[in-house]
Amino acid sequence: MTGLLNIVADPATFATVLRVMTPLLIAALGILISDRAGVFNLGMEGMMLTGALVGVLVSAWTGSAWLGLLAAVVAGGLMGALMAFAVNTLGANLIITGIALNLAASSGTTLGLFFATGDKGMSGALKSGVMPSIDLAVLGSIPVIGPFVSGHNVLTYGALLAVPLVSLMMARTAFGLRIRAVGVDPKAAATVGISVKLIQLKALILSGVLGGMAGAYLSMGYVSWFAQDMTAGRGFIAIAIEVMGMGTAWGTLAATVVIAIAETLAITMQTLGLPNELMQMIPYVVPIVILTIWTARGRAKRAALK
């Protein structure tokens, strides 16, 4: 028991939670934007994976982690645009398009890695960049709290800053209002002269930009290399998180914290000698349990209304 307490009170544990949170939060916010616009981005996993590879390659070629991030973000945005084109212009099914993007990204990144390095598994041979960590000079020197708040990756701060920004965009800008209108009733939105396709295109590009950023964090922050299928289902966990967050940015943050704590427990409690496999189940079991409870409660509420 004291072992557990030590883990919880350790700034290192807190840092782990933030590290785990960062890609999930960015990706979930990306899904949120697409979901509210009525074009659920099921291709998030593929966008993250593509962003992760492109970031590593471009940072290795240019020697700049920031240029790597920029390239990852552009790649994600292009994938979002491709998804919008397939769905809205060509009339493809949204779900199938998302799955297709994921499958294409999985093998496409392996192929890209092979062409760039001659290796199909890892990019270890490349000298790729890492996004810097930031020391908050004054805050960092505060006793007790300092070690908790300072010294994290720039994208971690970026992810946390994205929460109020996305919230503000959805609630207070014309673009956010139109996204919310289009997602609920595209026909009604069209009668006031809104172009539904344009709003959905913009929403998916933005969603892809965030996906590329989440991927870049994985390969240039979380670790410093690209590995085959390194997203390991985070794009799908982000989907579960977005649903748990009930389509709001702050709800998504709360859900991300819960999942990240569960995942951190899974990592750190392996040191306590509990069965590894049992711990690794936690991040997957938690969303299932929470979503089951919420769905059941929603049903009960609707039934009570009748």
């Binding site: 209002l177 919310r180 209108a181 609920v184 009733d185 026909k187 009604a188 939105a189 009668t191 006031v192």
Partner: peptide, 11 residues
């Protein structure tokens, strides 16, 4: 009606 039920009257 061509109203979006989840938005406020003003929106």
């Amino acid at each position: 009606f061509s109203l979006i039920p989840t938005l406020s009257v003003t929106e």
